[in-house]
Design a binder for these strands. Structure first.
Lengths: 99, 99
DNA sequence: TCGATAGTTTGACGAATGTCGAATTGATAA
DNA sequence: TTATCAATTCGACATTCGTCAAACTATCGA
């Protein structure tokens, strides 16, 4: 494995390595599926209510997930929408399939 | 996903979330394959030389990998042998396949 | 325009983490 | 037994990290 890919994977692991941030990620995955089926977006707002941490913390954690390339966000008016990055998932999948 | 499984995954991610520890894990994976083909064990000793950290640090990192259930170790005389835990790999594989 | 709502930035603080040197244990070889 | 080598434990240190309160920005509705 290339050094660059290893570094990228480590960043993803670090992003998933905290209970609250992992739960946040799981919620986004779940909510994304539901949102897709129902034809709307996944709003950060809806997820924030489910976790027991303040808004600044959520904002901070979201930034780390984005920074690790696990998700991407887009501002829609007053709200923030989230999408899981399929490419990242694919790379993680490959890594653990070959290990 | 059950809370218990989530906790276990987070522990694995945390164990893989540091560059040196991830490299250590990669070396064990690699060395394990080679060792299997050549009919011997994977010795911690052989791996230690490849990383630029002291023995106490390696010992510490190995313990975390074991604690996360990613590997198991066995003392053979003066040396320590390592084996990747296939069950852990399978669970990680499942997680990223379904995500 | 004004007030309310969603999210971000900043600064601070305690907790957890990675690393090392020194001392220690366990096992082999001489 | 003694010397040597592999690995662990302990104590300390600097660094990173998670969280929050307060202040701020941006957008929408009235």
């Amino acid at each position: 494995m290339k050094e660059k890919e290893a570094k990228s994977l480590v960043k993803m692991f670090k992003a998933l390595a905290h209970p609250n941030r992992f739960r946040l990620f799981l919620e986004i995955v779940q909510e994304s599926e539901k949102a897709f089926e129902e034809g709307h977006d996944c709003f950060a707002n809806a997820i924030m209510d489910k976790l027991n941490v303040g808004a600044p913390t959520i904002s901070h954690h979201l930034k780390e997930l984005v920074n690790a390339d696990l998700i991407s966000t887009e501002r829609k008016g007053k709200f923030l929408t989230c999408r899981v990055n399929p490419d990242a998932m694919a790379r993680l999948n490959v890594f653990f399939s070959r290990t």
